[in-house]
Simulated scan of single mutants.
Amino acid sequence: MKRTFASDNYSGVHPDIFAALQRANQGHTPSYGADEYTARATALFREHFTPDTEVFFAYNGTGANVIGLSAITRSFEAIICSDLAHINVDESTAPEKFLGCKLVTIPTEDGKIYPQDVAHRIQRVGDQHHPQARVISISQSTEYGTVYSVEEIKALAAVARQYDLYLHMDGSRLANAAVSLGKSFREFTVDAGVDVLSFGGTKNGLMFGEAVLFFHPGLAKHFPYIRKQSMQLHSKMRFIGAQFEALLSGDLWKQSAGHANAMARLLEQELRSIPGVTITRPVQANGIFATLPPAIIPALQEEIYFYVWNEKTSEIRLMCSFDTEEEDVRHFSASVRRLIGATASRI
């Protein structure tokens, strides 16, 4: 199947990850995380973050977000997030069903939320008639492909501390953000005040598997039971551990994310040179948002599939992956240029 710009979930498994799965597929090993692969992957996470980081593996991103939030909320509480947050837009009603919490959303123009907007939504503290704010949840990188700076995260963490809240980070594209910032994982997570992190693997070359990280003792006290109850405990966990071991033991995570980010910048450069195309959001990670002439979108999607983000404005989303090639970028931009030209010639 030809490569597309629809999502970094469309890509296959990185060959190095596939090789790690094959190596793990030998013989018998204890189940439910009591295996050497899980132990080594956990140790690597602690090297990248802190020695006392609590590490738990899960199947998928929605599951990682929901069970991570479940450990730090109660059903009468509220989670403050962007109106574009994955937990609000793309996880159906899983957060509401399994958490029972109210999602309090903040409209955003750049995918980010800011301290003053968060503080404004912390209302009626102690009022039994009103949901009590408990968590600030942010995405890194955001759903618009923008990246929070270390200072922006620290500012949100300060609000969380002021009001006795937790700061949760949805890191489905955390590696892309790390490359964009030129920072270690630790610098913009635990050192910046993040309490709980969903660390994404699937969008960076894994077949399946995410991790939930807790940075403070006590937060994960009941988490093993929460994970099991939520059906996110993988019996053959070595196959998640082996993938994360391959991803984190060297710089594979950085190579893959760096390549995807570089392809996004190249695609941005190509599209900016085409009359009739407007880049609508800053390109900081591996996503590009642009508006195209509406008339060319169906034909273009037939050639190289992508998603329309906003049908009213003809804004599209293009995602680059670890396996995106320059040829894909050149072909897409040439198709855009050709279709715009053909449309103009008929006017």
Results as ranks from 00 to 15, higher is better:
C81M: 04
I79R: 12
P131S: 13
F57E: 05
G68R: 07
T62K: 09
R121W: 02
Y37E: 14
V125L: 14
H120E: 09
G111P: 01
I113Y: 02
S31P: 09
N60S: 07
F49E: 13
H129A: 03
E96L: 10
T53R: 01
Q132I: 13
T105Y: 01
A119G: 08
T108D: 08
T146W: 08
S141G: 04
D117L: 03
A64T: 11
H28R: 08
G111M: 00
A34P: 13
S137I: 00
R134M: 10
F98T: 13
F98D: 14
S139V: 04
A41C: 11
H120M: 12
P51R: 09
G100I: 09
S141E: 03
I80G: 04
T50Y: 13
R46L: 06
C81G: 02
C81L: 12
F45L: 05
I80P: 02
D127L: 02
I113M: 03
G145E: 04
T38Y: 04
S137E: 00
S139I: 06
A58H: 07
G126M: 01
D83L: 11
L84A: 00
H120Q: 06
I136V: 07
P30C: 15
Q128S: 14
Q26C: 06
R121L: 12
G126K: 04
D127F: 06
L69M: 11
R121G: 05
T142H: 06
I72L: 10
Y148W: 05
A94S: 11
R124W: 05
N25V: 04
T146G: 15
Q140C: 07
Y144I: 13
T93K: 03
I113A: 03
Y148D: 01
N60A: 07
C101P: 03
T53F: 03
F98L: 13
T142A: 03
